[in-house]
Amino acid sequence: MKIPRVLEEAIEEVQDLQIAPLIDCVFQLLIYFMVAASLHKTEADLGISLPGTIVQSQALKMPDEQIVEIDAKGNVTLNGRTYDKNGSQDMPELTATLIRYRQAAEAAKTKALITIMAADDTVHQRVVDVMNACAAAQIKNVTFSASN
């Protein structure tokens, strides 16, 4: 029995893969996953490794130690002077002082050591700001005071 030509064409049309809607779907998925992936931010290291916390009065016998104090309001004090009172995260004043301190320590062939003494209620971001300033000044030896 011979199949009519009209029917043959209809069968062929049904059997052909429809590329256009497939590409539409794939592009929609591609755009979705591109947007989802671009939301991801990579977590970075601060570049400061801690040897652990120690009680200052016991083990720390570094002659070139500097203590950076952070109070509950986020004020940062070094050697009795408060730095970056405007609360800026970059802390340019502290960074400049720490760079000079590192250079002096290098000239004296000693290790530059920073001990961060933060109050109990200090927010973590402010502590990270100080560590960021240490990293900017290329000071690797940073530790924390065990007591506030």
């Binding site: 400061i48 490794s49 109050a119």
Partner: peptide, 27 residues
Amino acid sequence: KRLKHKKVREVMQACADAGASEIIFAA
């Protein structure tokens, strides 16, 4: 970033007591 430093210090102290040689902060 909003966490109080007291809690961070407690965890650091525990790590130091347990013999962890290096602590890295995420940022």
